[in-house]
Design a protein around this nucleic acid. Sequence first.
DNA 1: TATGACCTTCGAGTGCACTCCAAGCAAGCG
DNA 2: CGCTTGCTTGGAGTGCACTCGAAGGTCATA
Lengths: 161, 161
Amino acid sequence: MQTTASGPEQAEEKATRTDICAAPPPRHPRPDGQDRYTISEVAAFTGLTAHTLRWYERIGLMDHIDRSHTGQRRYTNRDLDWLDLVGKLRLTGMPVADMVRYAQLVREGDSTYEERRELLEATRRDVLARIAELRDTLAVLDRKIDFYTEARTGRAAKRTR
Amino acid sequence: MQTTASGPEQAEEKATRTDICAAPPPRHPRPDGQDRYTISEVAAFTGLTAHTLRWYERIGLMDHIDRSHTGQRRYTNRDLDWLDLVGKLRLTGMPVADMVRYAQLVREGDSTYEERRELLEATRRDVLARIAELRDTLAVLDRKIDFYTEARTGRAAKRTR
DNA sequence: TATGACCTTCGAGTGCACTCCAAGCAAGCG
DNA sequence: CGCTTGCTTGGAGTGCACTCGAAGGTCATA
């Protein structure tokens, strides 16, 4: 389905994993035009490794990717959109098996709309819950950071770990 | 491994591990009073297994826990507080190794305040970033859910909340 | 005094999500 | 032509965070 206006933060996170550079959004402009990207182009664009892209295909997380006359993978913009969604779902902590399930439903056609909606709604609830947890954690972190900051500036406070 | 009799705490542990349900606080009231909890009490309270609690101690994520005269672990309220923090940090995706590092700093005493503060601030930034990512993902999910919902009702209401 | 729940240790096993390897084919370049 | 680079495959290896097993000790209750 549609792409997103989604952000550089995905590419950025991936980049952080491989290089240590974090400053400028290393957003590879999607090489628009011909809709037939090699695996290394897609790797550069998504931040995933070529190994991982092949693995995604093997486990059924992606449809069989189109091949060139010599058997090399040629990814389409549609594939890139799908990878974008997969990246987002991955951020939510959704297990790969569940994403594979969703991919299967998509392959099975329109009759699976209802089940897809349910799966997405369950995911949505998870995301909401996780955001709440993180906010909670943030409050704890802030309290501790305050403690250490105050200790630094000389004020006494009670001992925390 | 014939532990069927201890039903409630096992069921509880399973539940905590599988659903990340956040609605009703399933908070075991902390058994206040004597400050000397057995490992299974702590397991029931935290949702971790006894195995995991021993493992945390082995890897240095917890101080050496006090023992009874027969060598059994006796956890204090202070240990419970620490486990609470560990649980929160775990939710942020912080690697166990980093938590061990923090635990070491705590053991090393007041001179490590500054480093602890830095570690916590880095974590805080991570948490903020993750919340932003999740919000972004939520927007994508909502758009897709809308699509499926409209497909079902043949064009209908838009989602609120 | 014996049963059975619960505890101890160390070390090995599990599941997930990659991550890498080896062998081999194909294309572009000097 | 040989060299380099990059792609293909199936299968094996890695790192993390647990998770479990085996062998045995302890303790309250019947």
